[in-house]
Structure formats: structure tokens, C-alpha cells
């Protein structure tokens, strides 16, 4: 049933054994405008997968489909299957789905009315989960340790998170996503608003975090994908063009469009 073109494309798409997360025929449409077309792909546990592509290719749209953020907006329709650990999550309540996936956004967005401490445990607070003081302290310390922010902020935990530098804020946002112990961390160009030093810190952090989490990262920065990702997805005009181990894709792209993008012919 697949059109000829799709069949050819499939050869360029790596098959992952025992994926932690699988997308099957995922499409996203804004009104009648299809932004992500029939994407099927599996993600490897405890690895960093980068989603690349020129702006407007649908990479952020794909990422946001995974934790069903599009359902916040009436004019966006997502179809297809999202399978997390063998379970289709499309029919589950979004409350449950989103708690299993942490999300980090383009611009650091700590809650401006909450302290650093409250930002880290915001997930618990928002979900109305009551914790004992000791439990909260543990979670806050562990999450901030995980993002290497603890030493920098341990004396100002009860100050507003918005007083931190951009890079610190973004690490705080990662800590906020980690506090819930999610299975997947989704990052949408998390360093695009940061300076190179802060970017390097976040990149180091992501490499460390993959020991415990599965990381999916949207990036417009090829060098970043090359530096830290294990697998790379290349999208173009809403289609998944190529998916492979990052090293392979960067040295030997199969599709001409991937090659042109990686060699800077467009983007």
C-alpha cells in the first residue's frame, strides 16, 4: 500500500532492537497543513537521539507530539501510535503520559513565582502529590546534583529561579524534568538561547544523563548532534528522511538531502 517513494525511504531508516519508545505512522496536522508525515521510528534506551533538519521541517512538532503537547491546541491533530515500553499511550490520560516524559524547552522557563526549591519539585506540587519535608529535600538535592547545579545554588534554594543565569536556569529546568524520574527526556533546542560555555555544560550533562534516561534532543546545530548524540534523525518537509547511528550518518549519509544538509548546502 505504501507509495513507491516511501518504500525507498524506509531503507534509510535504521531499525532499533527493543526500542524503549516507538512511533508508528505518526502524523501531525495544523488545520489542514500536515507538518509531520507518517513517521515510524524506534528510540534506543539510554542513548541520545538527535532530531535534525532545517527550520520548518517539523522536528519540534514531532518532539511535541511524543508527550502529546499538541492536544493543548484545538487546531492540531495527531494520528498514529506512540508505544512506550510496549504500551500504546495515545489513549492514556495525558496526565499519566506526560509524567513519564520530561520536557525541556527552547528558552529556559523556570516558574517565575516559585523559588529554586519549588521549581524542582513543581511536578509534585502541580500534581497535588503531598511529600514529607525530608522526601522533598532528597528529591531537590538529588535532582540538582544530577544537573550539577547543587553546589551553585545550595545556599540560595529559596530565592526565585529567575535570578539565575540563562545556563543555570536551563539546568534548573532539566532538574525540574528529572525530579519526577521520567523514562524519556524530550529537549527542544535546549541550548539555542545560551552562550557557548553554558551550552557546553548542558551538552556534558546530557551525555552523563543518558546513563539513566533516554534522551531525545531536537537541535538545529549539526555540530551539537555530532558531539553528543548516538543516533540521528534527519527530517525534511515533515518527512523522516534518514535515521542512523550518528557517526554513520555524518560520515556516510545515504539520502542526497541529508548529505546536502550536512554539508551546508541548505538549512
Amino acid at each position: 500500500m505504501l507509495p513507491e517513494e516511501d518504500k525507498n525511504m524506509n531503507e534509510n531508516i535504521l531499525e532499533i532492537k527493543d526500542p524503549v519508545l516507538t512511533l508508528e505512522g505518526l502524523s501531525v496536522a495544523y488545520d489542514t497543513n500536515v507538518a509531520v508525515k507518517n513517521v515510524s521510528v524506534g528510540f534506543k534506551k539510554n542513548s541520545v537521539t538527535a532530531i535534525m533538519g532545517p527550520s520548518g521541517c517539523g522536528k519540534s512538532t514531532l518532539l511535541r507530539a511524543i508527550n502529546r503537547m499538541h492536544e493543548l491546541y484545538e487546531n492540531i491533530e495527531t494520528t498514529g501510535k506512540i508505544i512506550l515500553n510496549g504500551q500504546d499511550i495515545m489513549d492514556m490520560s495525558t496526565i499519566k503520559v506526560r509524567r513519564r516524559m520530561g520536557m525541556v524547552f527552547q528558552r529556559p522557563n523556570p516558574f517565575p513565582t516559585m523559588s529554586i526549591y519549588d521549581n524542582v519539585i513543581a511536578g509534585y506540587k502541580l500534581n497535588g502529590i503531598k511529600l514529607k519535608k525530608g522526601q522533598k529535600d532528597d528529591i531537590v538535592e538529588r535532582s540538582l546534583q544530577d544537573v550539577t547545579l547543587w553546589d551553585e545554588v545550595k545556599d540560595s534554594l529559596f530565592k526565585k529561579g529567575t535570578f539565575l543565569s540563562g545556563g543555570q536556569q536551563q539546568r534548573l529546568c532539566i532538574a525540574r524534568a528529572l525530579a519526577f524520574s521520567p523514562e524519556i527526556i524530550l529537549l527542544d533546542e535546549p541550548t539555542s538561547a545560551l552562550d557557548p560555555i553554558a551550552t557546553a555544560k548542558i551538552e556534558d550533562l546530557l551525555v552523563k544523563l543518558k546513563e539513566s534516561y533516554t534522551i531525545i534532543l531536537v537541535t538545529h546545530n549539526m555540530a551539537q548532534a555530532a558531539r553528543i548524540s548516538d543516533y540521528s534523525l534527519f527530517m525534511y518537509l515533515g518527512e523522516l528522511v534518514e535515521y542512523d547511528k550518528t557517526k554513520k550518518m555524518f560520515t556516510n549519509p545515504k539520502d542526497i538531502r541529508t548529505e546536502e544538509y550536512l554539508t551546508g548546502k541548505f538549512g
Binding site: 496526565i95 506526560r98 520536557m103 524547552f105 511536578g123 502541580l126 525540574r176 524530550l186
Partner: peptide
């Protein structure tokens, strides 16, 4: 900001 909260469930 709102999306960050939604993403936490």
C-alpha cells in the same frame, strides 16, 4: 511557561 507545567502532567 504553561507548557512546562503541562509537560509535568
Amino acid at each position: 511557561l504553561k507548557e512546562a507545567a503541562y509537560s509535568l502532567g
